[in-house]
Write a protein that binds this DNA or RNA. Structure first.
Lengths: 317, 317
DNA sequence: GCGTCTCATGAGTAATTGCTCATGTCTAGA
DNA sequence: TCTAGACATGAGCAATTACTCATGAGACGC
């Protein structure tokens, strides 16, 4: 066939990967055809396609809402009075519910950023949110502002691992306001110190004005993110469990009814409580282990929207 | 037509297809694993996945702008003073440039419909537009209105084949105003008759107020859509070519400089000329055979945006 | 300059997917 | 009731894709 004149003088490797993947997935060519087209060996074509997949260049969407998921969404909305609910079909055997969750949640975030009117968008952190943001497509959303509602420094002084706001800013070109202090203060004084820092005051003020918040939901227990990532000690964890902790949002711990605990851990969080003012809050999370935490958050009306997966949705209903 | 099942307790076949495809593409399961999961034979799993693809349920996007296409976009914008330009990587050997064009053009349309402020969106028709719309995802855009700028009845009295506006309305739930008369009148009197019909006057009035128009570009010649689809006779085609016709938009024929011809065919078109008022016009089209027509439209400043493919872009530059 | 390490490559091969065909089932019509 | 036709099914096989491994070309440090 007529090989289109490719004057590839300086194609980057990722460009090649993207092109190979395009020909493969969109064009429906076979890998040997792609190889010929690109003038490389068949193996290389295969590797380019595989690389595009591995690099996350490939986004697959299913343009058909699976009926049972739609039902779950409807039921979730009704049961918990949510404004929005999205349920991803679970992938059994997947090591992690994020595999299914992220591709469904990402468009929800894109949707928020596609709004024309400038908005202030508050962001939490965490592994879930990070994975979702990674799946977002880059969109031009410089009119919005993104602000973090939680500190970005881990207890050991390193940058918090599941940084979200910078990634979002990368994807959207939105001005961003991280909260450049530790997630937790050690005591009241330190909390006052951090809170009083000009840039923190600024971020907090902005976050309080947020038009919408996007957060993950953390479980409590031996696998609690707060504990696993070293933000709280085993003793604090035990104390929280003692106090009836069921989950946390942005580090703020609540009980099974979704009421924030009167507990030192909560007092020492430098970040804001979400929701701060009754504004919309989109929660994202799935997994058997998170189900109780999510249920608690829903029970307390802490969320106005939820993205989860099928299995979790069933547990919630 | 798709039977919109409320609660078909046993999943509809398309549901199964969508779920199988989800597990395959998103979950990364093998077809035999899917078969086990769904409790069907391996062949059936394979057929479900194949069916999902065939039914167009699978939408693949490559999250990486290929550098050479970006360059072409930039060059197109600069050369022709466009506000927007998108270039799809060509798929060599594809029977039709639409394979590549539609997946790139569809998000552009979605983008237009995602605008919050209510808009009036004028639509042309044609095979290209139809294929693109088919690829759009359904979005809730009831705040907008879509109006057709061209009649929807073929010369033989049948509904025009490449109906676009109804499909768009399906996808967006937008109120829609087709122009329910023949594309072309046979003479001045008939033109006056059609134009005077209340619903046509209404549609035309609305179309004149459109905030943006989305159109295909037709070539002139033996393969001219206008001719192939029977809107004009061989004699009219010859006469148009004689008069220097280079292309057409919504049936209105223009020369190589993009100036509309003073010709009976143009006079008899019941639809509106686009652009009617200098508003934005997004043109969609690709293919060697359309290149001259597109170049003419660009030369005449008839378009403010263009979606095309790599090969065509190169021809235009 | 030389060894070694990493990484890309292509060959060969295993695994997976897609296709064809013979067969079975269901429906409609005589 | 019987028969033809349309369609779904699973077996078997061909085509395609993915993986493993041995090799060689730079890159880097000694």
């Amino acid at each position: 066939m007529a090989r289109s004149g490719h004057d590839d003088r300086d194609t980057s490797p990722q460009d090649d990967a993207a092109r190979a993947a395009w020909l493969y997935y969109v064009g429906g060519l076979r890998q040997d055809q792609i190889a010929e087209e690109l003038g490389v060996s068949r193996q290389r074509a295969q590797r380019l396609v595989a690389r595009a997949v591995a690099d996350g260049l490939i986004r697959v969407r299913i343009a058909h809402p699976i009926a049972s998921c739609l039902e779950l969404e409807r039921d979730l909305r009704a049961r918990y009075g949510l404004e929005r609910a999205r349920v991803a079909p679970s992938v059994p055997g997947a090591p992690d519910p994020l595999v299914a969750l992220a591709p469904v949640a990402a468009p929800e975030l894109e949707r928020i950023f596609l709004a024309e009117a400038p908005r202030i968008i508050a962001l939490g952190t965490g592994r879930t949110l990070r994975a979702v943001v990674e799946q977002m497509q880059t969109i031009d959303a410089g009119r919005h502002k993104v602000v973090s509602v939680i500190g970005n420094v881990a207890p050991d002084g390193s940058a918090s691992f599941y940084e979200v706001i910078m990634r979002v800013a990368d994807k959207t070109a939105a001005p961003h306001y991280p909260m450049a202090v530790p997630v937790m203060a050690r005591d009241r004084d330190e909390h006052r110190l951090y809170s009083g820092l000009p840039h923190v005051r600024n971020a907090r003020a902005l976050a309080k004005m947020a038009d919408i918040s996007i957060v993950g939901v953390g479980q409590i227990g031996q696998d609690a993110p707060l504990y696993v990532d070293g933000f709280i000690t085993a003793a604090e964890l035990a104390s929280l469990e003692e106090a009836g902790a069921a989950g946390e949002i942005c580090g703020h711990v609540f009980d099974a009814e979704g009421r924030f605990l009167d507990h030192p851990v909560n007092h020492n969080m430098v970040g804001l409580r979400v929701p701060h003012d009754g504004g919309p809050v989109l929660g994202i999370g799935a997994g058997v282990r998170k189900a109780a935490a999510i249920r608690a958050a829903l029970a307390g009306g802490l969320l106005t929207g939820l993205v989860t997966d099928e299995d979790t949705a069933k547990l919630l209903l």
